[in-house]
Structures are given as C-alpha cells and as structure tokens.
Amino acid sequence: MNTFSEKQGTGSVEEFTVSDADAGPYALAEGPDGALWFTLVHRGAVARRDPDDGRVTVHPVGEGPTVIVPGPDGALWFTEYRTHRIGRITPGGDYASFAPLTPGGGPFGITAGPDGAVWFTLSAADRIGRVTMDGEVTEYPAPGAFPSALTTGPDGALWCTLNQGDAVGRLTTDGHGTAYPLPAEGAAPVGIAAGPDGALWFTEIGAGRIGRITVGGDITEYPLSDPAARPHAVTAGPDGALWFTEWGSGRVGRITVDGDVTAYALSRPDSEPHGIAVHDGALWCALETGSLARIEVRS
C-alpha cells in the first residue's frame, strides 16, 4: 500500500445537461461515428450526443442499460441489467438484443474481447459470458463472487473485478479462471481498465482506494484522501494516467502510474458520477443527476 498527497486539479470542467434527473446517465463510450454514446439506466434507453452541435438523440432499448462499449463490428454493445440481456445498437439506431444462457443473471460489465467477440459479466449468477457477432452465446463460471466490470488485459485474457469476493479475477478465452484476493478488507472492487504500463487498474468502492495488479498477480493499493469517496469507474486517459469517478464525493480523480493523485470537483458533491471515457481528447463522465461532464486538463 502506498501513501501520497492528493492535489486539487486546475483543469477545465464543463457540464452538459442531457436528460432529466430521473433518466440516470450511467456509462458512456465514444462510438465509431465519433459521437458520444451513453446509457440512461432508469429510462431504458441509449442516447447519442452529436460531436458537432451537441444534439442528443434517444433510442429506447431494454430496461436497465448499464455499461456500454464499442464492439468489433462497428456497433455499440451494452448490458441490460434489468431485462437480463445484451444489447447492440448501430450508429444509425438499429437495435437488437441477445439472451444469455443463464436467466436472471444481471449482466453488468462488458468489453470487446481479444477474440473478436464481446464478453460480459453476469453479476447475479457468478458467471462470465461471451457473445459472437452472430449472436452465439457461451458462458463460463466466474473465478469468484459477483463479477462486475470487465476488460481485456495486455496478456490476451479477460480481467474482472469480483465485487463480493474482494478480489480481481482473470479468465482465459477458453474459460480457465484465477482469482487474486485484495489486501484491503471490504474492498468491493467495481471498475477495471488496462493501463498504459502493462498492468490492470481498478477501483475499490468499499475501501476508498485505487488498485493496480500486474498480469503476474502483484497488487498495489493507493488510498484516497477521502475514504468515503467511493471510486466507481476507471479508464486510461490520453495523457498516460488513469482517470476515475468518485461517486461518493462528486469528483473525478486522476492517478499517474507512479501513484500521484489529482482531484477535479464537479458542480455538485451529489452529482453521482459513474462511467468515464475518453472522447475527443478529453475525459467525459456520466452524472446520474442528468448531465455529462467534460474534463480537459491544462498542460
């Protein structure tokens, strides 16, 4: 475990209202069309923000859309947590969905895999699924309890957080799983992303820490200055650092690969930032209170 001082960021933060507060912007991703796509978890919709004029177009989908990612086929893929399906939408708005093999699995995390398929977690069923571009679904046991976020690692395996197992999991494309327990008690990890340093970085929402794990399983934890910050999602930024949302404090954080942390305050401490992604050279995060925030760091 490393210790450090946390600085207040001086970058530019802008917020854009994209829905009413009840719709719940949750996660977001840059699409192949250059637009910013985001889920509206409480409205049962996926929305597109035009990169030129900021106009928002809303597309109805299944209930509870959560995490969204660009797929290998030029479409956006997302999990439908409450309808227990995997959704797909093209940049033109054509929508389809696919049912996992396990009913009631609560799909949450999703990522484009190293094998040309899309992989997803079934958090309520302790399983990890795979769906091909033709809709063929396969499932494997997760290496621990409540698999949450999911990403492809630099080693060609799938890496996930095991929220209720206080661990990080690794799954090969043929279904072999390994769990790496975390040092922090009650870590409850959620977000995970591949870093620029060849390691995986993750958030510990229960312990108020950011974690790093090498592909060999070596773990380092960085405690945040606010133990109640509840870090949620994390992504690699265009600046060689990792960026994450602090759901409990209404801030966006940045951590270098050396462990130096900077925090950027949003307009409200109760803005509930969830997903975070790179778009148009800046960091964008979804605020469940109805806005998207854009953070551009001054050099």
Rank of each mutant, 00 (worst) to 15 (best):
M1H: 11
F4R: 09
T10D: 14
V13G: 01
E15Y: 09
F16L: 07
T17S: 10
V18W: 11
G24D: 13
A27P: 00
E30P: 02
E30K: 04
E30W: 05
G34K: 12
A35P: 13
A35G: 09
F38K: 07
F38A: 04
H42P: 06
D50L: 02
D53R: 14
V56F: 12
V58F: 09
H59C: 05
E63L: 12
V67E: 11
V67D: 10
P70V: 05
D73C: 01
G74F: 11
L76T: 06
F78Q: 02
E80R: 02
T83I: 07
I86E: 01
G87K: 04
P91W: 06
G93C: 12
A96Q: 15
A96T: 14
A112W: 00
G113A: 09
A117M: 01
V118I: 14
W119T: 00
A125Y: 01
I128T: 07
V137L: 10
T138W: 03
A145G: 11
P147G: 11
A149P: 08
A149Y: 12
T151R: 05
T152P: 00
G153M: 06
P154C: 00
A157S: 08
Q164A: 13
D166F: 04
V168L: 14
G175M: 05
H176S: 08
L182T: 07
P189I: 00
V190A: 12
I192C: 11
A193G: 02
G198W: 02
A199S: 15
L200I: 10
L200C: 13
G208D: 07
R209W: 00
R212A: 03
T214C: 10
G217C: 07
G217Y: 07
A228C: 00
A229C: 11
A233S: 15
T235C: 12
A236E: 15
D239M: 04
L242N: 03
T245A: 08
G248C: 08
R251A: 10
G259I: 08
G259Q: 03
T262H: 13
T262K: 05
P269K: 15
H274T: 13
I276Y: 01
A277G: 03
V278G: 06
D280F: 01
D280V: 01
G281N: 05
W284G: 05
A286H: 04
L287D: 10
R298H: 11
